[in-house]
């Protein structure tokens, strides 16, 4: 079974590579050999969108890994974070309409980002303290509670912010494109990738190099043992929930600047996070990284390298990715059975 899946997996990868390299005639991007510039762009698209996936999914996986809570309100915190940042940005810029890149200094973006992340984190913390902590260990019940909260938040956000699409303005500094050896590319997308790397490194350092991180990692492996050692595990849980939700809020600000905010966006980003962690393995930072990259590759390559009339079938490839990974490793690339 294992080796069949392995062979199948590598064959798929080989066919994919050959297709992109030589055979992809009649696709929007054309084969690599004839249009190397397009390939570079698509690859960059894959990496930069993967960065955004990673920021959002890392919070999701952190909460799950430590507490076995599938926080289905994660998408709601994402959207709420975005809306909050937009309100702060309007306040700081002093305009409510037609905010230009030139109007937005770096701080007019960074401060709303920090405030939104903070507020999303606090809301997540409140949700955990008020509703979830009484049901620790009843993972399905906790999941249901987060569903109920997501339903309520989604409806309230329509009434507070309206349903129509809005977006957050990037700072003028990065809201432009650069051209390097004939390839034109967006600075804000590269910035997004940069932020993801910073977040990833910070999370890694936090989990690997600090005492709190050590406790969290120990908690992921064996919560009751950590508790038995006299460590206040409740505090650690609260912290993890705060950080996880704050990451959702932060992702919301970046996602809101990149792809806009509207009713229903919460569900899309929840789905993205779930796919990332299913592919990568729940509760592991490495898994979130791998999952984001794979999903990024699929979202960027499928519409570019499918024959032009079939680009709307690209959603199927997300499913193929999922099926292929799960057939090989049922708990994701870096996951372990519960």
């Amino acid at each position: 079974m294992q080796w069949i899946a392995l062979v199948a997996g590598w064959s798929v990868a080989a066919i994919f590579a050959a297709w992109v390299l030589v055979f992809a005639n009649g696709t929007p991007a054309e084969p690599l050999v004839s249009q190397p510039g397009d390939f570079v762009k698509v690859l960059l698209n894959a990496l930069t969108i993967a960065g955004l996936y990673f920021i959002v999914a890392s919070g999701f996986t952190l909460i799950f890994g430590l507490m076995r809570v599938v926080n289905l309100a994660h998408g709601s915190f994402f959207l709420l974070g975005g809306y909050i940042a937009l309100e702060f940005q309007k306040l700081m810029v002093g305009k409510s309409r037609n905010i230009l890149g030139d109007d937005v200094g770096v701080f007019d973006w960074v401060i709303p980002l920090l405030l939104a992340a903070m507020i999303a984190g606090i809301l997540g913390l409140i949700m955990q303290q008020v509703f979830l902590r009484w049901f620790q260990g009843q993972d399905m019940r906790e999941t249901m509670i987060t569903i109920a909260i997501s339903v309520i938040l989604a409806d309230m956000m329509v009434s507070w912010f309206g349903g129509i699409g809005v977006d957050i303005q990037w700072p003028g500094l990065i809201d432009r494109a650069i051209t390097v050896s004939g390839v034109r590319y967006s600075v804000s997308r590269l910035f997004m990738l940069g932020v993801a790397i910073v977040v990833g490194v910070a999370l890694w350092a936090w989990l690997q190099k600090t005492r709190t991180g050590m406790v969290i990692r120990a908690g992921v492996d064996d919560t009751s043992m950590v508790q038995a050692l006299g460590i206040n595990v409740q505090l650690v849980f609260a912290l993890a929930f705060f950080v996880g939700s704050a990451l959702a809020g932060m992702g919301g600000v970046m996602g809101g600047s990149f792809a806009g905010l509207a009713a229903g966006v919460d569900g899309q980003w929840l789905l993205n996070s779930i796919i990332v962690v299913i592919v990568g393995g729940l509760g592991s930072l490495k898994g979130a990284l791998a999952g984001s990259l794979l999903l990024g590759v699929v979202t960027a390559f499928a519409p570019s390298y499918l024959p032009a009339g079939f680009t709307n079938y690209s959603i199927i490839f997300t499913f193929v990715l999922l099926g292929a990974v799960l057939a090989w490793r049922p708990y994701g690339l870096f996951g372990t059975p519960e």
Binding site: P28, A259, Q268, A300
Partner: peptide
């Protein structure tokens, strides 16, 4: 060019 509804990343579609 027809990006599907709810597309998050339009870059692949505008490239077409």
């Amino acid at each position: 060019v027809f990006p599907p509804l709810n597309t998050t990343d339009y870059s692949s579609f505008v490239s077409q």
